[in-house]
Nucleic acid binder design. Sequence first.
DNA 1: TAAAGATTGTGAATGTGAACACAAACACTA
DNA 2: TAGTGTTTGTGTTCACATTCACAATCTTTA
Lengths: 189, 189
Amino acid sequence: MYLRAFSILKNEDQAYISSSKLAERLHLNPPQIRKDLSYFGAFGTRGIGYPVASTAEQIRGILKLDVAQKAVLVGAGRLGTAIAEYPGFKMFGFEIAAVFDNNQSKIGTKVGKNIVEDIAEISTIRQRDIHLAILAVPADAAQSVVDMFVGCHIKGILNLSPCYVVVPKWVKVVTIDIAMELGILPYYI
Amino acid sequence: MYLRAFSILKNEDQAYISSSKLAERLHLNPPQIRKDLSYFGAFGTRGIGYPVASTAEQIRGILKLDVAQKAVLVGAGRLGTAIAEYPGFKMFGFEIAAVFDNNQSKIGTKVGKNIVEDIAEISTIRQRDIHLAILAVPADAAQSVVDMFVGCHIKGILNLSPCYVVVPKWVKVVTIDIAMELGILPYYI
DNA sequence: TAAAGATTGTGAATGTGAACACAAACACTA
DNA sequence: TAGTGTTTGTGTTCACATTCACAATCTTTA
């Protein structure tokens, strides 16, 4: 979140930003921002604020987003293709480097800049220096694909299916359950 | 999350589930589950566990998902159409009741079971008993569409664009930033 | 009908994150 | 070079969420 904010400020040619000004933008409290940033070092200069460009690069380095990150996408359905062509990954330096599906009618077609490959060939990503995966398959197929990932040196998984998946402790999973996020809204109405 | 778990258990024809069994499934601790559920009432029976069917209905009622919830989708791009045809909303009783876009070439086409309407006609949803909105437009258009929502009695917004939007305090916004969720993964690798 | 076994519901303790207030440090000015 | 104004970094306080432990209560069985 802070990386996004500092990147936008950089595009606006702001040289410095204070915690109070940044707090307004992000709808946070100034002390919260200072505490968060101070966990990873002292980026700011007292009396002035945080230097936008260098802080952005510092955060980018901490998140390991300073090197281009390749990701594999499994599932070339509607959600998968939408993800593959989503322009927002660029800001964080992500590149969809391969797309897989199990549907024969989709294999060989083009999604974004990638040709859809057969899921049976998933093990070839081991030679392609890919350690991130995006999972956009139906819930009942999620665990079996995750098991394939684990055998292919994948270390981080963005799971877009509404289910828990079991992984070894060296694999990090982030799950986005869109229906659940929508499901909490009526409660507040 | 609990509603999803209890719904799945119901489909599996389980009559009762104990907090310890449920904790295994959800990767939580048993006391956590009991505390969470007890905030909204005493659903379980001691010595036995929680009755699956009735607890599911209780939670559904608390979340106000026992009545069909209509939602309007704005943005008939790749992400929007993927959302419109996503089968996962059914479990929570959601229905995409209208789709809008500002692109003349998309207006009139069919997305899911809806005909895409012109965003200029958004105010017509006031007569259609719709109080939820899904926002799938580029970031630079998000705030202006949100302002339209506020004028149309929308009370809950699922924002899929990577930006903060300003709303009156009676409107609840949930933002899903897919790129940001992916962005945290390399840090843990 | 009483005893045993199981599981919930909840008060207390523990841990964690957010908010506050102030000292430290920097830039600017006279 | 000293003084003023501003903003960071952080020790402390506070609030909340999680975990624990146990009493309460239900079903089952003899």
